[in-house]
Design a protein around this nucleic acid. Structure first.
Length: 470
DNA sequence: TCTGGGGTCCTAGGACCC
DNA sequence: TCTGGGGTCCTAGGACCC
């Protein structure tokens, strides 16, 4: 716990759905559900309009369709678009402090003490108010909830307290007043299993938890977890904000629309997963010694088999070879619902200047503006375009806003009809620019779903793009 | 047609070593 | 006729997070 409320936590509100509503104005004010649209899909994000009907993250899409009214948009995920908007937000955070720790695409901690700020309650309140306004302006209306306090745990809880578009500053000394009435479930690290064990001994709030001894907690939950919760209940949390965390594993997995049992097909799927993992390892310049194969059976039981090699590898063929061996040792007679391939025990190649990875975009007919700075979005008052926003253009196909200035917008195209990386500027009021490529909105059909199941020859309408780096 | 995909961290047992 | 006490590495599974 620090003396000043110097830890800020930002959580973007219903992020995927918010980006979709920004890029497609017709979706604004309507329930939007983003996630897997196939038979085994689950919801990634439900807009607040959809939450009003009970749609929630991690719920099966089938159930969300049952709950939401006609007119609800069910959309596949467009990770590249979310990544671009996330990058804009993270750049704004890095203007506040060099110590920014992204937790996920829509969440980050900032250590304000590493910047030059007034750390009084009034000071950080003003800072956060300004930050929220700048995020909304730079992203075209995506909002975030902010919590600020003396530790990561308190900041995170603060951002949860008022959502969406909230701001909570917990003044130093008032941590326990905020913490103790909350359900134990609101502490990070308390999931369904831990909550259930605690409920069995009549512990439902953080205040209840505070009354348990360290010995009680560690004997109930294990050493690390027990100690961690004992401290959290006392707001005793000095975890640092760590920028640039290194990845510890890389994996790819897929749940199949229909369970697999054909050995040839299984082998081909393992190859495809190994290829995805190897490609990502190589693009990040890393390799690993342990290959793990994951198999989920139709009854949802999940098992893993792993093998550690003497040397780190990143070659998709080698990864596949190991994974094939591991698969051979698993009984697949009941069928396979999911396959996964992962590599861990990562070792970063240190090759100095051999790799200059920051190659500029392929610039074609753009004499100016070739290095628009996403960290410094120019004033956009006269131009309703935001960095990261998807646009459509008659001549060039789909693109996204790379940078914008007064009456001028720079668009980077990567659609099927243009060479990747093509960059052009337009007048901000160019009528050829339109927000959003049409999302693959599937109108809700009361007579759906198709009882024959998805056609395996039909590609997923929005396949995830594992190579998308934003 | 219940239950995705990408991760992190912890535990526990066995092997092995000093 | 006995069995200690660490430490590290590996494997498998599970809880949890977004």
């Amino acid at each position: 716990m620090r003396r000043d409320p110097s830890i800020l936590h930002l959580d973007l509100d219903a992020f995927f759905a918010a980006v979709e509503q920004r890029d497609k104005p017709s979706l604004r004010g309507r329930p939007v559900v983003v996630g897997g649209t196939g038979g085994r899909g689950v919801v990634s994000t439900a807009s607040y309009e959809a939450r009003a009907f009970g749609a929630r993250s991690a719920m099966s899409t089938i159930e969300a369709r049952r709950l939401c009214p006609p007119g609800t948009a069910f959309l596949g995920s467009r990770f590249a678009a979310y990544r671009r908007t996330s990058d804009v937000v993270m750049a704004l955070l890095r203007e506040l402090s060099p110590l920014v720790e992204p937790v996920s695409i829509d969440e980050a901690y900032v250590d304000l003490a590493a910047g030059d700020h007034d750390l009084s309650v009034a000071g950080v309140t003003a800072l956060a108010t300004d930050l929220k306004a700048r995020i909304a302006a730079a992203t075209g209306g995506v909002t975030g909830s902010v919590g600020i306090g003396t530790s990561k745990a308190i900041a995170k809880i603060g951002s949860e307290l008022r959502k969406p578009d909230g701001l909570t500053v917990v003044p130093p000394g008032q941590e326990l007043d905020v913490l103790h009435p909350l359900p134990v479930r609101s502490l990070g690290g308390v999931g369904p299993a831990t909550a259930e064990r605690l409920h069995q001994i009549a512990v439902t709030t953080v205040g209840d938890l505070h009354r348990l001894s360290l010995v009680d907690l560690t004997s109930l939950l294990g050493q690390a977890h027990g100690t961690g919760l004992h401290r959290l209940a006392r707001a005793d949390d000095d975890r640092p904000v760590v920028a640039d965390r290194e990845a510890k594993s890389v994996s790819a997995e897929e749940t199949y629309a229909r369970d697999l049992s054909d050995p040839v097909r299984l082998g081909a799927e393992v190859d495809a997963l190994a290829r995805r993992v190897g490609t990502r390892l190589r693009s990040s310049g890393t390799s690993g010694r342990t290959v793990t194969l994951k198999v989920r059976r139709p009854d949802f039981s999940t098992l893993t088999r792993s093998s550690t090699l003497p040397q780190p590898i990143d070659d998709p063929r080698l990864i596949a070879e190991v994974a094939h061996r591991l698969l051979a040792g698993i009984d697949r007679h009941a069928g396979v619902r999911l396959l996964g391939v992962g590599v861990s025990g990562l070792a970063t190649f240190v090759q100095g200047d051999l790799f200059a990875l920051d190659e500029p975009p392929t610039t074609t007919d753009l004499p100016v503006d070739e290095s628009p700075d996403p960290e410094q979005p120019a004033p956009t008052a006269a131009v309703p375009w935001y960095p990261g926003q998807d646009v459509e253009h008659d001549e060039h196909g789909a693109g996204w806003v790379w940078g914008s200035g007064l009456n001028r917008v720079t668009v980077r195209f990567e659609g099927p009809r243009t060479p990747p990386g093509r960059v052009r500027t337009f007048a901000g009021d160019d009528p050829a620019l339109r927000p959003g490529s049409p999302p693959d909105w599937t109108p809700p059909d009361p007579s759906a779903p198709d009882p024959s199941g998805p056609d395996p020859s039909e590609p997923d309408p929005t396949p995830p793009d594992p190579t998308a780096a934003g």
